[in-house]
Design a protein around this nucleic acid. Structure first.
Lengths: 123, 123, 123, 123
DNA sequence: GTGGTCTAGACCACG
DNA sequence: GTGGTCTAGACCACC
């Protein structure tokens, strides 16, 4: 696993896990890899993974069962989806529009890209 | 002046100055406010403003004249415009599209916002 | 059976058993359910029940008879009652009072709850 | 500073700070001691204090200002008070009543203690 | 085996 | 100076 420098590793791991949950790699109710497993796989210090898992359990995405490991919470995928959509519409999109206005970029230019990329179509 | 937590303050200041130059508040060839002036106005540590100015002069947007302060470079506005547009089309926009795909957000939803905000019209 | 997260499961089980003994569900001198039985009933790891039973036998509340299982000790109920009352008056109650003082909660507020719950009356 | 064994040190520190904020030792809006200061004073590893501070800032009790330290949030005292009262009435008190019922302790016995301790009176 | 906590020490960006 | 992150390694309680 490779990491960017401008963002804490533990957050990158947490987000990566979110996308893995969305993709059903870790289904709801199932057990996550243990901290140590995940740490060796990601070539990272176990403490860092601990931090990722704590962050996720604070968001009710996973939950620890004493002595047994972490399990994906029920409804986790939907909750992740909600969080990401909210972040998109309340932060990413307004900032995006702000930049367009500041740079005088026309809506048409962006819409053309959206058509090219076929974002309309179902996954 | 208010700052977001997820970005270094000195960068936010630098970016803000860029937009001020684009808006002709600081015209090309003219003298910038002194570090101290800017610091008190923005309610910020002077050292932080120093860093912003250094960052801007590295980008050839402003330049220091010994003992006289910083001056807006000739061609600064156009250079800023180029940099920001490049960043927009090569980083912001692709990342934006990636998120839309991941979250299943339709082009239509974004286009509606663009219409509402009237990003088409000239300022 | 459901467990809280802030307390070891084996202790919660042990405490639960104590109350079952007080309530004559497991009368003195009688045989306890086997570890396996109890574990499946409580949906818990058998090793955890083992620990609960060991903890209880250390407190002379139950005792193991070789090859026959655990039996409720004679005088267990009275001993439990004593222990719990002692803990209540020497630990729980003082801590309770301390919190009331810290938070400025009036005696009246608590007394009202006690009346509502009818803690005066015999069960 | 002395710590109990049954509770994480970083939590004990965090709670201790809460009471110090309630007691105006750290007034709202004022700067907290730095992580390193607090660590040496409490004879604890700096990382442990970091965890305490993170925990508190998650609860909106303190907030970090980049490069300047942690500051007590506005309204922190009231928020702490609310949290503690909520915990008292929704957790401590019901559990307290449950124990009373289980042990057959009469309301009168508790009320006498409350009178002795004069919990009625204003602080 | 599992997670949870604590320590020690290092490096970095920021103000 | 400040906090923020990461590493390494240790010890513990719990299942």
């Amino acid at each position: 696993m490779e990491f960017k420098n401008n963002k804490p590793i533990f957050l990158q791991i947490a987000e990566h896990i979110c996308y893995e949950i969305l993709g059903r790699r870790y289904p709801e109710g199932e057990r996550m890899p243990s901290v140590r497993e995940y740490a060796t796989e990601a070539e990272v210090n176990p403490g860092t993974v601990v931090r990722s898992f704590e962050w996720l359990s604070q968001k009710d995405i996973i939950a620890s069962r004493r002595g047994m490991g972490y399990y994906v919470s029920l409804g986790a995928a939907e909750r992740i989806r909600q969080n990401l959509r909210e972040a998109f519409f309340q932060e990413t999109l307004p900032e995006f529009v702000r930049q367009m206005k500041n740079l005088g970029i026309k809506a048409e230019e962006v819409e053309n890209v959206l058509k090219q990329e076929k974002v309309n179509e179902e996954e």
